[in-house]
């Protein structure tokens, strides 16, 4: 009766008891599959099996030898850093306005948050319709009202007979998936940026005012340096979420046209599930690991620094 009471009063023991379930669960459903994925990548396991013969690094070298894989690796980098560039600029602009108080803030913020709140698979379906080959609303808008105006200065954006096939041309399809993912991640980055801005003490503001820093000057010398750490946190998150994204690319292009938008994730699905080469599929997805590890280490380093200061 009293042993658990004693336990509850001992801080260290209680901490262990309280944290243990979380750690055990994570080890079971994340640790075990992760180790298993590494094991599978070293075997010739095929679809539906959990084991295979040890083949060393064959899967990694075989995957690397495929031109589609290298294209997927390159795409993953372009996709990740392309969309993050858009996201960072957008988040910096939006967050500074959203910390202010003004009329209609609630509804504007709701519109900004929408892409993040919408289930990602469903939001992507909306874009699938926007990029439709025959009835794309982008092409109609660019081809009719916008081209009508631009017509006066002799510019013609969209040829109505042969409009751009957003998801049917290699370069356009890559631009399309980058745009959609930037659209989806931007609100999350905005929220993290707002959190960063909110954590800057008001004293700093007052001190800057007394020193005569205002407007752009204050932005450059005071706000930006203080916001840099949180911006980097948002960037690190964005890199992981984008590099590891499967849904947007899978639903929007399926990796097409002709594998032009394959990412490491969709290519590992293609090889590991559709072609049934489980071992090689695992190897392909593990090529993501160095990137994730680098991001994790950077995060730890930041947290450590934040703790010291």
């Amino acid at each position: 009766m009293s042993w658990w009471r004693n336990l509850a009063e001992s801080r260290r023991a209680l901490a262990v008891v309280l944290i243990a379930p979380a750690v055990l669960f994570i080890l079971l459903v994340v640790g075990v599959p992760l180790v298993w994925a590494i094991y599978l990548s070293l075997t010739d396991a095929i679809g539906g099996s959990l084991t295979g013969n040890f083949v060393g690094l064959d899967n990694f070298t075989h995957a690397w030898g495929d031109a589609n894989f290298r294209k997927a690796l390159q795409n993953t980098l372009v996709f990740t850093f392309g969309s993050q560039a858009i996201v960072l600029v957008g988040a910096a602009l939006l967050s500074h306005q959203l910390v202010k108080e003004f009329r209609g803030k609630w509804i504007l913020r709701m519109l900004v948050v929408l892409p993040w709140a919408a289930p990602v698979a469903l939001g992507t379906l909306g874009w699938l319709w926007i990029f439709d080959s025959l009835f794309s609303v982008i092409n109609w808008t660019a081809g009719h009202p916008i081209d009508w105006v631009l017509g006066f200065v002799g510019i013609d954006l969209v040829d109505p007979i042969n409009p751009p096939q957003w998801l049917g041309r290699a370069n356009l399809a890559l631009i399309a998936v980058i745009m959609v993912h930037a659209w989806r991640v931007l609100p999350f980055a905005v929220v993290i940026f707002i959190a960063g801005l909110a954590s800057i003490p008001t004293e700093v503001d007052d001190a800057a005012k007394i020193d005569g820093a205002d407007g752009l000057k204050k932005m450059w010398w005071v706000t930006l340096p203080l916001q840099l750490p949180i911006a980097l946190v948002a960037l690190l998150f964005g890199i992981v979420f984008t590099a590891a994204d499967f849904t947007v690319v899978f639903l929007l292009t399926g990796g097409g046209p002709f594998n032009a938008t394959q990412m490491l994730t969709t290519w590992s699905f293609q090889i590991g599930i559709n072609s049934g080469s489980l071992g090689e599929g695992a190897a392909i997805s593990l090529y993501l690991f160095p990137l994730l590890a680098a991001v994790s280490i950077a995060m730890l380093w930041f947290a450590r620094r934040a703790q010291v200061s």
């Binding site: 994340v30 590891a244 499967f246 489980l278 593990l286």
Partner: peptide
């Protein structure tokens, strides 16, 4: 932070072994 980093291990890395499991 250690627990949080686990959140960064993406499902796209884990679904291959989990699916036959």
């Amino acid at each position: 932070i250690g627990i949080f980093l686990v959140y960064l291990v993406p499902p796209t890395l884990l679904f291959l072994p989990l699916s036959p499991l």
